[in-house]
Design a protein around this nucleic acid. Structure first.
Lengths: 198, 198, 198, 198
DNA sequence: TATGAATGAGGGTTCATTCAT
DNA sequence: CATGAATGAACCCTCATTCAT
């Protein structure tokens, strides 16, 4: 790779990191392009060489951060010897919850954006995009020996239930803090899975 | 009531309606105070007689619209002869889903705002605020002859599951349209309730 | 006086007092008509029944406050048995300085407005305006047995020297506090008077 | 210097000149940023690249204009062979009065702002700020062979007497025009100096 | 590629003034 | 006389975007 190419990558990287930092600390609406380029130490015009506008960089950040989370969770799963479907799914949920608990600003940022829309998009584009490991997760359900009425809907409900409840529980401890909530949630997930089994 | 008071109420009403219309069609960020007052046919300064800023009117709209939805659902429930807990909860969910299906812009607006934060707040303040009927819903669980490990957490999970999945299903038919999704959802709710029963 | 007339006078009085309070605490520029009427407890429109605008009420306040100061000083002078011209003038200066030291906000308000312009205006209109006692002060010079090249210019220089230096000394203790400054000032005044004697 | 830097300097200069023109003709309160940028032929946002707000540009103008006046007077003094203290001070006063008489709008602008506060500030910062020549004036008193009770207070009284009386005399010919007033003023200054001599 | 000065539309907000009650 | 809701022009300021360098 040429020296200029390395430089380019660094600039882009700096903008992404700075934008994430600012988005999570002061919110997207209150973050200006000025803030981003100042903190990143590049000129204003440079921003527009890499991103269309503020929402472009936000979307790229969400996709990037979300896929990293799944990637990490999936890598951890493969280290375990878990074979049981329910155990595997709950391990993933627990791992992802753990990541969000560690980094609450990340949760606030992708918050409810990590819903089915993005999930599905990434799942579809996973073949072309080496970043993403959603597909592995999807395969867990499909390749399980157990049969489900509709694996996609089951996955959908689990993802939505987990992301939606954890948002409230981790960030605001409502209706209870995440550690107290986990047993209820994991019970519910197991029950959900069984309810959809044929 | 004096004539001027009626006039005031009308102005406020006009601003609320117009703001809702604009928020739901072009989003809050892209809606300006100018847009609102122009469409409402009042002077710019008049806006500030009734609301502090754009976010003040938004919050008042969310609370108002959300409480109406529960109110309608609760009224419909009392018309039925349903006694079984699961049936009553599913009736409420179905009714609310119906309202959102009828008025998708409303769903987009209060969207994921209708989550536990507001739900809980309203529930707490319901005694002083005649607008709100959340409390009735909460009582359904508490006064049921069946006993649950933690009624609040159970309600929390149901509300989050319903609001989160329906958002995607109604607005984007993802992963499937709402009518096809309902049976899965209602099954899941019944299972959730049972899983939390002592 | 009729009851309504008393009420009118009270409203006007309330507006004047409130305006003075606000002008001296937050400055004229930052004081709004709204502030004034709110604090005075009258309706907005009422302000315009008594004053043309913010600057009208300010001018009326300056004239009123300034004439009171001279009036007080002159009354105090007549209580003394002082006959010597220099003593009488310095007594007046001292008394006025004392009043300003007691009420610094008053000094800040009429501040450098208490200059020759207003002084002269009031002096001229003193015959028709029972409020004002400038004329008495002027007479001190004219009716003194000593003769001066130009009594008006002498008075002018004294007034300007006193008002200008005391502003700085009382409010900011620059270049020194008022008590330390007084001896220098009074010396200077005596010298000034002598220098203008024929 | 780069071309863009020259351009920047020109823009700043244009804004300062335009602002001064407008401040002196219509007053600061009635001058808007819009007025300034329109007259200067730059965009509104450009103003904020160079100045924080209206009061920032005003302060910069006062300091700049005031220091120029002293600078000019001091330069003229050094051209004369005057050695006598009183002569030197009166030369300075006369020169400054001359400048204000030539440019009455300038007097109206810095008007009574040219009082001890700014005078002292500038005097203190004169060592670091090559713009200002107040210090030279101060040295005149300190390095004179004659001794004074308190040179600073003496200077203070002279500055206040001159600035305060000339304001009225030059701008309003009150109580008389400046030419007629000068002899009285200069007499008074000489007497003031002598009165403070030990 | 990278810069950053310049732009100017349009944002939110204020507030003196009016006028129907 | 007194009110205060309504007005809307004008304010200050921001900031995404452009473009000459």
């Amino acid at each position: 790779m040429k020296k200029t190419d390395i430089n380019k990558k660094q600039k882009r990287e700096a903008l992404l990191n700075t934008a994430f930092e600012l988005f999570t600390t002061q919110g997207i609406n209150k973050t200006t392009i000025n803030n981003i380029v100042d903190a990143a130490g590049v000129a204003k015009g440079t921003f527009y060489l890499y991103f269309k506008d503020k929402y472009d960089i936000r979307n790229k950040l969400i996709a990037h951060k979300a896929s990293r989370i799944f990637s990490v969770a999936d890598a951890a799963l493969s280290q375990t010897g878990l074979t049981e479907l329910e155990d595997r799914i709950i391990f993933l949920a627990d791992n992802i919850i753990g990541q969000f608990t560690e980094d609450k600003s990340l949760l606030g940022f992708i918050s409810k954006n990590l819903s089915w829309g993005i999930f599905k998009n990434e799942l579809i584009s996973s073949s072309e995009n080496s970043d993403v490991d959603f597909y592995n997760i999807y395969k867990i359900l499909e390749h399980s020996p157990r049969a489900f009425k509709n694996p996609e809907i089951l996955l959908f409900m689990i993802v939505e239930l987990v992301s939606s409840t954890c948002y409230s529980s981790i960030l605001y401890s409502e209706p209870t803090d995440i550690e107290a909530f986990k047993p209820y949630l994991f019970d519910a997930i197991r029950e959900l899975i069984r309810s959809q089994e044929i």
